[in-house]
Design a protein around this nucleic acid. Structure first.
Length: 1033
RNA sequence: AGGCGCGUAGCUCAGAUGGUUAGAGCGCUACCUUGACAUGGUAGAGGUCGUUGGUUCGAUUCCAAUCGCGCCUACCA
């Protein structure tokens, strides 16, 4: 229930399980100890030990099977590549309860790093390893950091919204875990009342069994059986995403512990007068036979009609005309309303009209709910079947006539002629009768919003029933206060407005549902209908002083699923017991969720947390956007545009994708359209991108406050990024592994590129940390991307090659280069790990030992911390100058069409002392990366005709000789001159403006002046150069 | 109707307490199988930052209006 309403197909497919995991003891499973590994080693004896071990093994076994289910494709693929048999269930289970030390040994990856980056195999392998080793469980003495997973529906399967959300949470958890915090990611699933009941009912229907025939108890049992067998689809898929959740603490909202919390909360609220039973209008689904929540109602515009009828005044003095979209409800009319100031109707206010077909007299009342501009300005009022009319009825103390049964047939409260008719048959009949009796004025076409139940698609009926309610105002007030005072912070902040808006208009919460699957309401009735509430029947009797011989019957209703969800942050931690976990991890650190459930879930958690757990449930709420398709459409089964995250990870061929998208459609007639669109958009199916690429894409797209359009181009680019990282690692290992000793020991000196890349690293560390803290996953991802690709690969590796290939190079400098390659890469892997856990683990395992780091996993390594002392601003300035020089030379080469291989001669002139020193120290980089045969000084006057490039105050010259085309060079110079002249004009104008000089900050003015001088120098040189070249043409 | 958000390169998106040559990826053009990577390299083209006003020495950035788009809440019986 508490998941983003990303797609409407979560009940469409009913997975079946082939593996023989029957008879899972759920009771035991749900009471798992905190850390299974610790538990096995803990001294215990006899049957207790046996029982506990069995519980752990059961759970792990279950996990393993689910995991294999979701990753089997990847495993097989990988196995085939390696010519190895795929791992068997038995093998997976065997590792499931080994201690971490043993596991660490068995997973030493094969040497050397394979040439190609193949995500599928390594991803499944590493997840299994981490889980078996117990790395996901809380640990360490650090400050607690906890996130409660919005529990996905147990019937659900992973969609893009989950995948996105889980990526962000996992990134946060992994970051904080590495940074030394004692992290708990609380996982579990939601029992999802209606959704689950429907799935199981559908299954039973296939066997020809009806729920009613089975009886309540057996039906509930059938649901539990279904859950044991098929309820774990989504948790297996979460593993494929790399989610580092603590599976040993997995909870289900119908667990014993959570159910106890629900009962305690209900009973306390009831006895405090905050839960009451009352007759109100609710959204009623006549097909499912239950009240449903607002979130389960979907209103859609449909074509309908507006019927106009005349109601005669009882005194014979005329008539009024009313209009309605629902003629059948006129049988329940108890008034006609007009606007109090409407001059047309002043004379009829207070009179009676005779209601046709019913032969009742009803009053004409005045209420400013009526819009005099609309229709006739006269409205029929049916308080029992319309939310607005209900309000009007309350204000005017009108009787409420319920003309429907629970099946939406006409009830005995209506005239005999209509009783028992379906609401739509009754509509036809009422219209026909009115027409026959001359009351019908006209029928117009009219578009109206029709409310439907999102599960059953039945038209929802506002219906008067007895339901249980939570009196919400007393709970809402402190919840508003908590956000106002900053005890809870919304990120981005503007969502707090939405929150206030809702909380200030909040209505009492209808918490009863007429279902069988859920938390049964702990209320009992005696023969007289007197209600007794307690945590169980005995308690209810005791509290109500009911004698033992009085027969009590229990309320048949269950609670709204959101009632238990509202307790999730503390019920999962053991509340009402004051457990160590509750003390440690409550309040949780952050809630990560979609905006669509702020009302239904976030607000209610805040209210319940404050009331029962004594504090806010979380300090921050990070609200992310919805994942949409490439066109910005919401993904849904009926639109046929759903992307399955697992298909992006493992790939899918076109035919399978088409089959998947067109099967089990609500409207089969959509199939051809969906198929055509799918074939057009994915002519070759979807290639496998791997989990890391998908995760990186989600992170990069997670900008603040906007929905994300999922663009395949992005994931493609980030798959390439993974490949880049993979190959950079291969290169670094190639350069260092055989020299491991040399890399690690002995004196090392750092050259300019080394000092520069290390400086860059420190800056990146700071930026990435800040961005994680601020939930700017996109900026963190971008920073890392640029650092790895641009700084490390494009520049540093190329510079390092120059030195590593130079046999004359001072050994200590060579060591410095090797160490820098290793250390910077190793740090980068740790920086990237929260976003891309798998590839970084795989590569880190090879890099870390050579880099002199040790540990069983990158997961538990410290997150890099910036070392300010390593920041070398001079190195940054120097390398920037070197880059400028190289770029200038390359540009000439490219624009002059000089063959890339050809070595050319180059000269330089000018430049201040500092630049001369830089040049002197770094000319081998210029020569190598600029492909220069020679690089010699020359005086400005003695220089031959050349193409020129500027770096700072130094001019680099490529003599024209036979290889440069003067015309091309003139073109190039003109372009550059044009740019500089434009810039000069702009700045000159600015500085010529007296008020700018007078009013702008001195700093800004000085900067502009400096720039002008620079440009003028450059212009002078280029103009001179241009004159010389022109003479040649 | 009320509330929120968005309009920046062909596409998907960053951006700044107002001063930068307005950035990235994909796509596009040219050249390159150089021993980490063609899932690559080098160089390049491409933007009057929706429109109009205002504030300011200076606005793509702040304000107002306007156009277009999206979402949420409430809906006209």
């Amino acid at each position: 229930m508490t998941e983003p309403t990303q797609s409407d197909d979560d009940t469409a497919a009913i997975p079946t399980l082939n593996e023989q995991v029957t008879d899972v003891d759920l009771e035991r499973f749900n009471r798992l100890p905190v850390n299974p590994a610790a538990n096995i080693r803990a001294p215990a004896s006899g049957p207790d030990l046996e029982r506990r071990i069995k519980a752990v093994v059961d759970a792990e076994l279950r996990n393993a099977v689910e995991y294999i289910k979701t990753s089997i494709v990847a495993e097989v693929k990988d196995a085939m590549q390696k010519q190895n048999p795929p791992p068997t269930d038995a093998a997976m289970m065997a590792t499931a309860n080994e201690s971490s030390e043993q596991v660490a040994e068995t997973v030493q990856p094969p040497e050397p790093l394979p040439k190609a980056y193949e995500p599928a195999g390594l991803e499944t392998r590493w997840y299994q390893t981490w889980q078996s080793a117990g790395y996901f469980a809380p640990g360490g003495a650090g400050e607690p950091y906890a996130i409660a997973l919005p529990p996905p529906n147990v019937t659900g399967s992973l969609h893009m919204g989950h995948a996105f959300q889980d990526t962000l949470m996992d990134a946060l958890i992994r970051f904080q875990r590495m940074d030394g915090r004692n992290t708990l990611w609380q996982t579990g699933t939601d029992h999802a009342g209606i959704a689950t009941q429907m799935v199981v009912e559908r299954n039973l229907a296939l066997k020809g069994i009806k729920r009613e025939e089975l009886g309540r108890e057996k039906f509930e049992q059938a649901v539990w059986e279904w859950k044991a067998e098929s309820g774990g689809t989504i948790t297996g898929q979460l593993r494929r995403m790399g989610a580092s959740m603590d599976w040993s603490r997995e909870r289900f909202t119908l667990d014993d512990g959570l159910s106890r919390a629900v009962r305690d909360v209900f009973v306390q609220l009831y006895h405090e007068g905050l839960i009451y039973r009352g007759q109100r209008l609710v959204n009623w689904d006549p097909v499912l036979g239950t009240a449903i929540s607002d979130i389960e109602v979907e209103s859609q515009e449909e074509q309908g009609h507006m019927w106009h009828f005349r109601y005669p005044l009882a005194d014979g003095s005329g008539e009024v005309v009313v209009a309605t979209t629902r003629p059948e409800t006129m049988l329940g009319d108890t008034a006609v309303a007009v606007h109090p100031e409407d001059p047309r109707y002043q004379r009829v206010i207070g009179k009676q009209v005779r209601l046709p077909l019913c032969d009742r007299l009803i009053p004409v009342i005045a209420d400013d709910y009526v819009d005099p501009e609309f229709g006739s300005g006269c409205v029929k009022i049916t308080p029992a079947h319309d939310f607005n009319d209900y309000e009007v009825g309350q204000r005017h103390d009108l009787p409420m006539i319920n003309i429907f049964t629970k099946e939406a047939r006409i009830s005995d409260n209506a005239p005999a002629a209509y009783r028992g008719m379906d609401r739509y048959d009754a509509r036809k009949r009422v219209v026909a009768d009115l027409q026959e009796q001359g009351f019908l004025v006209r029928i117009d076409d009219h578009k109206l919003m029709v409310p439907r139940c999102e599960r059953s698609q039945a038209v929802v009926e506002p219906f008067l029933t007895d339901q249980w309610y939570v009196k919400i105002a007393p709970l809402a007030e402190p919840a508003i206060h908590a956000v106002e005072t900053g005890r809870i912070r919304f990120v981005p902040d503007n969502w707090s407005k939405t929150y206030y808006e809702w909380m200030r208009n909040i209505q009492d919460w209808c918490i009863s549902r007429q279902l069988w699957w859920g938390h049964r309401i702990p209320a009992w009735y005696d023969a007289a209908g007197q209600v007794y509430v307690g945590v169980d029947e005995d308690d209810a009797r005791a509290r109500g002083g009911v004698a033992d011989d009085v027969v009590l019957t229990r309320d048949p209703d269950v609670l709204d699923t959101w009632f238990s969800s509202a307790l999730w942050p503390f019920s999962t931690l053991g509340w009402p017991e004051q457990t160590p976990e509750l003390r440690t991890f409550y309040p949780t650190s952050v809630l990560v969720t979609g905006f669509d459930i702020i009302f239904f879930w976030v607000a209610r958690m805040i209210m319940m947390g404050l009331k029962f757990a004594g504090d806010v449930p979380f300090r921050e709420v990070y609200i992310h956007g919805l994942v949409r398709d490439a066109e910005g459409q919401k993904m849904s089964k009926s639109r046929g545009n759903v992307l399955d995250p697992l298909d992006l990870i493992d790939g899918i061929d076109l035919e399978s994708l088409v089959r998947k998208r067109t099967s089990n459609l609500m409207r089969p007639e959509d199939a051809p359209r969906i198929e055509a669109a799918t074939r057009r958009q994915f002519p070759d199916g979807i290639p496998p991108f791997g989990t890391d690429a998908l995760r990186f894409t989600f992170a990069a797209l997670a900008t603040q406050g906007r929905d994300i359009k999922f663009d395949l181009g992005r994931i493609d680019g980030y798959r390439n990024f993974c490949n880049k990282l993979w190959n950079a690692t291969r290169f670094v290992l190639l350069m260092t592994e055989s020299n491991a000793d040399q890399s690690r020991q002995g004196e090392a000196a750092l050259g300019l590129p080394e000092r520069w890349i290390r400086t860059r690293l420190q800056r990146v560390i700071t930026i990435v940390r800040d961005n994680f803290e601020a939930y700017r996953f996109d900026l963190a991802a971008q920073t890392l991307y640029e650092f790895v690709w641009d700084d490390f690969c494009d520049w540093y590796l190329e510079l390092a090659k120059v030195d590593l290939n130079d046999r004359q190079r001072n050994p200590s400098l060579q060591r410095g280069t090797r160490r820098t390659l290793l250390e910077v890469l190793e740090s980068a892997l740790r920086l990237l790990h929260p976003i891309m856990p798998f590839i970084t683990e795989e590569t880190w395992q090879r890099v870390a030992p050579v880099a002199g780091r040790s540990g069983p996993t990158i997961m538990l390594q410290p997150y890099p911390v910036a070392d300010e002392t390593l920041i070398d601003a001079n190195a940054e300035a120097a390398l920037q100058w070197v880059q400028q020089a190289i770029l200038g030379i390359r540009r000439i080469r490219s624009e002059m069409n000089i063959e890339p291989k050809r070595q050319i001669t180059a000269l330089f002139s000018g430049g201040d002392e500092r630049e001369r020193a830089w040049l002197h120290a770094n000319d081998r980089y210029l020569k190598s990366l600029g492909r220069l045969e020679t690089l010699e000084p020359v005086s400005a006057d003695a220089a031959p005709e050349s193409a020129t490039a500027l770096a700072g105050n130094t001019t680099f010259l490529i003599p024209l000789a036979d290889l440069i085309d003067p015309v091309a060079e003139l073109k190039r110079l003109d372009k550059e001159l044009e740019r500089l002249r434009g810039e000069h004009k702009r700045i000159d104008g600015k500085l010529g403006n007296e008020s700018f000089v007078a009013k702008a900050p001195a700093e800004v003015v000085r900067k502009e002046r400096d720039k002008l001088v620079e440009i003028e120098t450059a212009l002078a040189r280029l103009e001179q150069q241009r004159a010389r070249i022109e003479q040649l043409t």
